[in-house]
Amino acid sequence: MKLALLSMLCGCVLLVDGPSSAEEPTVACDKAVTQADMTLCAQKDFEKADAGLNAQWMLTRKAMADRDASLSAEQRGGEQALLAAQRAWIAYRDGQCTAEGFAARGGTIEPMLVIACKAELSEVRTDELKQLAETIGQQ
């Protein structure tokens, strides 16, 4: 009897219709008014900027590796220099954006400020990496 009741209760829980953890909330970012929605939109902007940065990073790193391969052994090192610069840049971006978030420390807008900063700096870095690839003759 207890087992039948438990099974019935479990079945009812499974029938409850609600968003699954895999579903992402949808927000019309051009009409976002709540802080939660604006922060979600900032996150989407950052994800797009980060994807663009990662794509350009792969192209620029390959261009630098190809350039290194065309140089004599003592002239190589561009790819390693680029990697060191990118690691330093990530630390800079994260620290700078955390600092910018202090303008609203403890407020509900703080996460949005940090995320928006990361998106903006990532877009700038993407352009820098693209220019570097173009400078060394590759895209």
Rank of each mutant, 00 (worst) to 15 (best):
S122G: 11
W89R: 04
L59Y: 08
D50F: 05
D66E: 14
A36N: 07
A42S: 15
G52E: 14
M1R: 02
V16Y: 08
D17K: 13
Q131P: 06
S70P: 02
R125N: 01
A84W: 05
G101P: 00
I115W: 03
A99R: 04
S122M: 03
I90H: 06
G52N: 14
G11M: 10
S72Y: 07
G78Y: 12
G95H: 01
G52F: 00
Y92H: 13
D45P: 02
I115A: 08
M8C: 10
A73G: 01
K130R: 15
Q35I: 13
A69G: 06
E24D: 13
L71M: 12
G107K: 01
D127R: 14
E123K: 14
C29G: 02
R125I: 05
D37Y: 09
M8P: 01
A69V: 06
C117Y: 03
I136M: 11
K62L: 09
L113W: 01
A85P: 05
F102G: 08
A69M: 08
Y92S: 07
A63E: 00
A103Q: 12
L15F: 07
E79N: 09
V114G: 04
W89Q: 00
A104N: 06
Q80N: 12
S72E: 09
T98Q: 13
T98K: 12
M8L: 14
L6Y: 10
V124M: 10
R105G: 03
D66Y: 06
C10M: 12
A63G: 13
E100G: 01
D66W: 03
L83F: 10
Q131N: 14
W89A: 09
E79M: 09
G107V: 08
L6Q: 11
M64E: 08
I90D: 08
F46W: 14
A55S: 13
P19H: 12
L14S: 02
G18K: 10
K118Q: 12
C29E: 00
F102M: 15
L121E: 05
C117W: 00
M112N: 03
P111E: 05
A99L: 15
A133T: 04
Q43R: 01
R105Y: 13
S21V: 12
C12G: 12
L129Y: 02
T98P: 00
D45K: 03
E100R: 03
L53K: 04
E123A: 04
G11E: 06
